[in-house]
Write a protein that binds this DNA or RNA. Structure first.
Ligand SMILES: [Mn+2]
Ligand SMILES: [Mn+2]
Ligand SMILES: [Zn+2]
Ligand SMILES: [Zn+2]
Lengths: 159, 159
DNA sequence: TTATTATTGATTTTCAGTATCAAATTTTTT
DNA sequence: AAAAAATTTGATACTGAAAATCAATAATAA
């Protein structure tokens, strides 16, 4: 109970900082922190998952019917540029975004049966990726890695 | 010279086997090895790179004006299912296909300046990926990994 | 032959994402 | 304050990739 409270509080604090970072980013670029952007940010943050622009648009409209779809797309791009959100692509045809602020880098392990995704990271892999790029004379600026398979639950059902 | 000849001959042999495998696959599925499919296969194989369906459609029409775009899409799907081609996604908005028959698995290192791509593979990474999935109770069926960066040529130019 | 099945190319449709643009809002300058 | 400049917005139109539809063919089986 106490732990949960702590976690929740931690999340709020992070949310505040992320919001602040968004604000700072906009200021730096001489852009405005409008009410629409605030609403979209808040909804995006409250979802806290891997959400597509269209899903977010739907959710946002529940808070404010007047917000346009284009603004949602635009705001997600801004959040991306501000380093608060990240695009993820689970190869199922839709691009999603995930909150990325205050989160360590991670990759995804995806169950192709039920669609469940697990966030994973292996420092040894990350290191080897750097090495590998280096060997080919590349300066690595990023990577995307998705592991596809079948989770234990889905494996169980099948057998 | 001798080496080159050997390689070329090797490539032809591989092409023959790939064609054969395509044929076998179609037979197994009770599908037909039509002239259109043969042409599309041949052109695809002769390109030998990372080609988009639209590019392939254009190239194919040079051989046979009557071939339809839908057939190119369909045939690429078939080649994929037959394990002869593989989809690749360099995150530049277009899906490409590469010949995959007789080729070892590989991942891609991509220069974001000039678009050049290098095929790479590191068995240690592959092993760790398996491990990682295993630890989460997943049975791994595949993965996609793209390393993005800047190649030595492009780095040189900038500085 | 006749019936069945698979294939094709043209066309339409879908869908995500982008571009456009006039109206509205905010900021800056007089 | 008023006017001018800059930014933002939402509606709408548009794009391009990919899939679905469908009538016409072609190949195969009965
Ligand atoms: Mn994630
Ligand atoms: Mn390749
Ligand atoms: Zn599952
Ligand atoms: Zn380069």
């Amino acid at each position: 109970m106490k732990i949960k409270k702590f976690i929740i509080k931690g999340k709020e604090i992070i949310m505040q900082s992320a919001r602040e970072q968004f604000f700072q980013y906009l200021a730096r670029k001489k852009l405005r922190f409008t009410s629409q952007r605030a609403i979209i940010f808040d909804v995006f943050w409250s979802v806290d998952g891997h959400v597509s622009p269209e899903e977010l648009y739907r959710l946002t409209k529940e808070k404010d019917r007047s917000i346009g779809q284009a603004t949602v797309y635009r705001t997600l791009k801004l959040l991306s540029d501000a380093g608060i959100a990240r695009e993820v692509d689970f190869s199922d045809g839709v691009t999603r975004y995930e909150p990325y602020y205050g989160q360590k880098h991670h990759d995804h392990l995806i169950c192709q049966e039920c669609g469940k995704s697990v966030e994973v990271v292996d420092p040894r892999i990350e290191k080897l990726q750097e090495e590998l790029a280096w060997q080919h004379g590349f300066t690595l600026s990023g990577h995307s890695m998705y592991l596809y398979g079948c989770c234990s639950q889905c494996s169980g059902k099948q057998a």
